[in-house]
Every structure is written in structure tokens, then in C-alpha cells.
Design a protein around this nucleic acid. Sequence first.
DNA 1: CTGAAAGCGCTTACAG
DNA 2: CTGAAAGCGCTTACAG
Lengths: 367, 367
Amino acid sequence: MTNAEPMRPTLSEVAREAGVGRSSAARVLGNYGSVSEHTRSRVLLAAKRLGYETDELARSMSRGVTMTIGVVLADIANPFFAAVSRGIADEARRAGYGVLLVNSDENVELEDEAVRLLVGKRVDGIIVAPAGGADASAEALRWAADRGTPVVQVDRTLNDFEADAVVMDNRDAGRAAAERLIAAGHRRIALAWGPARPSRRRVTPEALLRWARTSELSSVGERFLGYADALEAAGIPLDPGLVMTGEQTSAGVRDFMRSLLATEPPTAVIATELDAVVAVLAEVRESGLRLPEDLSLVGFDDSPWADVYTPPLTMLRQPAQLLGQRAAERLVVRMTGDRGVRTLDHLPVELNCSGGEGSVAPPREDA
Amino acid sequence: MTNAEPMRPTLSEVAREAGVGRSSAARVLGNYGSVSEHTRSRVLLAAKRLGYETDELARSMSRGVTMTIGVVLADIANPFFAAVSRGIADEARRAGYGVLLVNSDENVELEDEAVRLLVGKRVDGIIVAPAGGADASAEALRWAADRGTPVVQVDRTLNDFEADAVVMDNRDAGRAAAERLIAAGHRRIALAWGPARPSRRRVTPEALLRWARTSELSSVGERFLGYADALEAAGIPLDPGLVMTGEQTSAGVRDFMRSLLATEPPTAVIATELDAVVAVLAEVRESGLRLPEDLSLVGFDDSPWADVYTPPLTMLRQPAQLLGQRAAERLVVRMTGDRGVRTLDHLPVELNCSGGEGSVAPPREDA
DNA sequence: CTGAAAGCGCTTACAG
DNA sequence: CTGAAAGCGCTTACAG
């Protein structure tokens, strides 16, 4: 049993082995300052001989920079966030940064804890998809930003928070989804899910809109506003009964769809999240309806499955990986010292199935 | 413009503010040693007043422990690895560790670089899904392990590498997939994809088996062996023409399926990866075949989509998140000082659609 | 070009 | 219980 742990050699040991001073060894191993070719080669040789690798932790300590960025997302297992992380990781690596990742599960407390952890580990910057809606306190995030740690928001934005953000153009996407269906002749278009409104009581269209416009800036909230825009432009009255504002879960979608289909069936539905798409499909199957003859569907968050589904699904493709990349690029600029004004970057969302294909068909005559 | 960056207060400043020595402040802020109630409260008060947060970087430096684990996976955007990461992250947090994540893209060089980066940042341990097959050199990994950094392998194992591993019971899974199809009456069962054999020339069944048994321990390799086991047990000769051994990509699967369907169509197919499942479905659609009447399918890597597909797909469900959790648990034990013998943990893979349902039907009479 | 010394912000024996 | 001092492994002015 080898319980003699081979300690990693330090800079001093390399210096001694090479027969030079510590500073000289430091200069060649750290690639700075100037050294004679002679000492350089001696040091390099000694380093090789000892298997020296510089201790980045110590370097971070003295340089005051860790070359690490912190990332706080709802759930890395969610395909959307997984793609975002990938975009971040690639861009970070390109710029020489490592990535420390934490899941927040859309929980404000966990997010706060995560941010403190990251600041404690002295990350050079933070990318976050803020949980808890636009009005969340997000104390730790604001504290971190005040303390001088650059923060970039992705996919969501917090009110009264002066940090850069990179988001999808969700309102435009919601509008595009509804327009696609309206163009096919639909007027009863359900939205699963819409903004998470606390009360489940039915409200007037005006109240729903007013509430959405003022209190909420989440992505699904924005998508709802785009949907409302499209209806209004087409002269179709907004029916709050067609908008799911309750619990944003798969089970919630299934309940919503089931009761809707049983009472006042829509001719089309927009599913604003991947989970919602799958839940709608499950309920469609359960109810025996045919897609798209009996019900048209436009979904969000493209997936390879959408193309091989029968029928192929009409989906809005979010450039999730690009979103992550952009956020990382922005953060790198900030970490490099840019103090310019706040930036808000909107990425376009595209329909993947153009033409008359996909899961959109005209409404049935008898509908 | 506030360009006066609020520097974070240090332990010394808190001590001065509290009017005590540094060591005393350290003891209360670090929760160790003993201090009088009086000084404790003074220090706590001063810390609060100054907004002190301990610098984990400095703490790591002096304690020699970073409370961070490094994770090297092929691609975080892949649903399987995304789930694995989630399992790791949850377990790591539970034990108080942060997670530094790097993608290797199945590239041995990138993996090596990632491992060196992680060791440089002095992570306390590493979890890795080794790239490049069982015989890969994986120098950095071996070097890290020799140096005393605990390493746990997930999903794959390297030959001649004395590190713990947590893997799926892939051979058993491959066997289960084939048995399911054989039980339904199939004898011509294609495998997309099988082990990545360099040469694309056809070989004898014996040569293929011999090669797979000796040189390869990747997960798809194991799945192929299980498939072969099931065929042998059923007295069905192994036909190398039905086993895809070429390029393991979606395009490769489509080529393989297309030429197979055009020349000597199988009655069933096993798709050993999620990408392969989607590619098979795409080719099935293209060719106008019906699932499962014309072709039965058993896939790997369950997804919520499988349940809402028509027909619902018979899939082998890999407990990916559990895999990550187990690996992290194992690593925590090692990081805590356990020097016990190597551990190899096998997780069972389960069929999600039992009974006669799903995408498996008896072969057609005329086949 | 080169080396001794101080410093990054903690922790940890070691005396008092 | 408490404080001065040394140390973690680098980097960084500062003389020589």
C-alpha cells in the first residue's frame, strides 16, 4: 500500500533544485518579467524533473483573481438550462475561465445561498437566471454586485437591478406563436402556461392584462403579452379562461387542458415551455383528439424529438446555447474592467416549421 | 458613478473593530477553539457591522482543502449527462462541496486539459466519465490519482486504473433489450449503435465477439455483449451485418438504417443511445414504415417524450441522476480519507414499458 | 537580470 | 480564554 502521498512540489523547491532564487523561478514559471535564457532553461528543467504544476489557488490568492465564474441556474437537468450552461462553459473556457455551477430550483433562498457561496469562493463574476420573478428581493445578488462582483442575468431580469442581461425576445416569440395560429384561422387559442398569477379566480381581460403589464417580467409573462398583442391586432377578444395562470407544472397543464377540453375546447393551444408541450401531448392522447386535425399546437423550446413526432411539431426554437455564450461574453468584458452602462441583449426566437406543415392546421369547420 | 469599490473587510479589520486579537476573531468566525461569551458577541457584532463574510479562498489556502469537486463529462447539454450532473450537484451540496464543471466532448486531450485545470485549482476530488474508450491513456487522470486526488469514474471505466467507478449494468441492459424482442418473436434484430470498431469491413461473428470481449469496455460495447448473450441463449446466430460498428453519430445511424432497410431489413432494432433512437425514428418516418407493425424498437435513455410518442416507446430507463449521486457519495467518502479497496458499483437499468405495449410488436408474418 | 522581503487573508500550534 | 507569530504557495515591488 502506498500511503506515502507524493506531495506536489512548490515553487521554492523548484528554485532550490534549479539553484536560483524564488523570484527567478516564479518569473519563468509565471511567464512574466525578464530572465536570462540560462536560468530559464535551468528552472524549466528542474520543474520538469520535479513534475511541478503551478498551484492556481495560491496564484489566485496573490493575484486577487480566481479565473473562475459562478453560474446559478434553476436546474441543470432541464434541457434549456443545460444548453445555456454549455454555451457559458464554452465561452468561459475560450477566455480562460473555469465554471462553478449551482442549481437554484427557482428557489430564492437557494439562489441567495448559492450566490454567497460563489462570492465566498471569490469567483470573478456571476451569471444568474434569477428565480422568484422580477420583483424578487435577491439580496445576495444585489449585495454581490454592490461589492464589485460583475453579474450578468440570463433569461430573466430583476426589477431595479442595474446588471447586464441577455434574454430571449419572449414577447415577440409569444406574438409569433399566436400569429401563426391566427393566420391558420384560429380564434380560440389557449395558452399553457401563462404568467403565474397568485389568484386562480377568473378576472376580466383588462385586469389580467393590467396585472401582467405591471407586475411581471418573467419569460412566460412576456410570452403572454405577445400573445395578447397578436390577439388584439387581429381583433380577437382576450378570453382569460383560455389562459392558464395557475401552478406552472406538468400536472397543472394537464388539469387545465382536461377541464378546458371538457367544457369549452379551444381549436389551438400554445405551450410556452417544454414541459408544457409534453403535458399537452399527453392530455391530447388521453382525450383521443387528433393532432393537428382536432387541435393545433405551437410549442416552445425545440427538441430533436419535435421533428420525429407525428405530426412534426411546430416549435419556437430558443437559441439557448447562444444565450449562454452571449452572457459569458458580456461577463468577460465586465470582468476585464468595463464600467460602461448597462446592457440588455435580446435574442430572436424562431419558428422551426414554416409553411403549412407541422402541428398547425386550420380549425375544424364545426368548431 | 460609484467607482469606490467597497472592499470586503478582512478578519484583521473585524478584530480591530471588535478590539480583540486576530486569533480570537478567527476562532469565533471559524467556529473552533474556545472563546468567552463576551469576546464572541463583540466579534459577531463587529462582523455584522462591517458586513464581514469569510474569504473561502484564503481559508482553502491555509486549511489545504477547497471544498470543491471537479466534474469532467462529455457534454452537459446531453440529457443523460445533464441528469448525472444534477445528481452530483445535489449530493455535493448536501456534503458542503461546490462543483466545478468541464465538458470534454469525448476528446481525450480536452479531458486531460480539464483534469489539469481542476488539479491546478486544487479540487478535493474528481468525478469523470472517461473519454476515448477503456484503453485510453488518460495520463492526467492517472497522474491526479497518483498525486493523491481521489477520482471516481462514472458511466465508463478505464482499464488498469485503480479508481472507484459507478456504472450502469450495461451488459444486463443490452441483454434485457434483446430478450424483450426475442420474446416477441424477433430473430433479425439490428443494433444501432454497437461498439466503435475501427474497421468497417464485415467480419465473422467470432471475430466481432472476440474483439468486443477483449478490447472494449465502453457502455455501448457492454450493451452489445448483452445483446450477443441474449441471441446466443436463444440460439440465434449473431449477424455482424446487423450491428452498427461505424461512426457513432446520428448521421451514421441514418446511413446504417437506410442501407439495412433497403437490402436486408431487420424486424426489430435496438437503439443504444438517445441520439440513436431519434435517428432511427427519423429514418423510419422517411422510409414510410409503421412502428411497431413493420419494425419494433427498443431504445435507451428514457425521456418524457417517449411516453407521448405514437406508439409509446419501449425504453430502457437509465437512472442517470442516481448514477451521479452515487458517484458523489463515493467521492465524499474518499475525500474524507477512506483508503479502502476499489469499489465498482453497478446500477440496474429498467424497461419502462412492460407487457405487450409500447413499440414492440410481433414480427410480420411475411418477414 | 536577480534575489530577499513583504503581502494576499485565513488557520494553527505555542506560549502566556 | 487570548494574542503574537509563523505558515499555506504564490506574486510583486524594491534594491542590487
